[in-house]
């Protein structure tokens, strides 16, 4: 069996490459990557990727708030609003900070404000993608 034919490492197992540089378990990398955008990659020593992800996702969220986008809450009866809330929740601590400071509470009255709402939702979803990518790096599913 050549090196390229080796079985990929199982979740949670130790890997021999640089992806295993973090002492934290992969689940912790996933959670921290979700709470703080890009932090999962930073924990794995992927500095450039982590900073780029952090800047992109935070800018996405910040532009959404600046455009007077809405931060959705769970206590609504609209199914689409619930989906938007799930997307918003993907931003992790950014969402909590926004709720704490009262951002995104006004009604969406303009097209640009609607764009802002979509920026916030998509920023949250992108953060989930980034956190899962960090998890994949931590368990060795993604090689580099």
């Amino acid at each position: 069996m050549t090196a390229k034919e080796q079985v990929p490492p199982v979740a949670g197992s130790k890997t021999t490459d640089s992806n295993a540089s973090s002492k934290l378990p992969p689940v912790a990398v996933l959670l921290i990557g979700w709470l703080v955008p890009g932090a999962g990659h930073l924990l794995l020593g992927k500095w450039v990727r982590g900073i780029l992800l952090m800047v992109s996702i935070i800018c996405m969220f910040a532009f959404g708030v600046a455009l007077q986008g809405k931060l959705y809450t769970p206590n609504t009866c609209e199914p689409l609003d619930m989906l938007d809330f799930v997307g918003d929740l993907g931003a992790g601590l950014l969402y909590a900070l926004g709720r704490l400071l009262g951002w995104g509470q006004s009604a969406v009255l303009t097209a640009v404000a609607d764009y802002g709402s979509k920026f916030i939702v998509v920023g949250g979803l992108l953060n989930v993608v980034a956190a899962i990518d960090a998890h994949s790096l931590a368990i060795g599913r993604k090689q580099s």
Partner: peptide, 14 residues
């Protein structure tokens, strides 16, 4: 442009 820029960065990396 802003939406495309940030989304493309994340897509490219991940």
């Amino acid at each position: 442009v802003l939406f495309s820029l940030f989304t493309s960065i994340v897509f490219g990396i991940t």
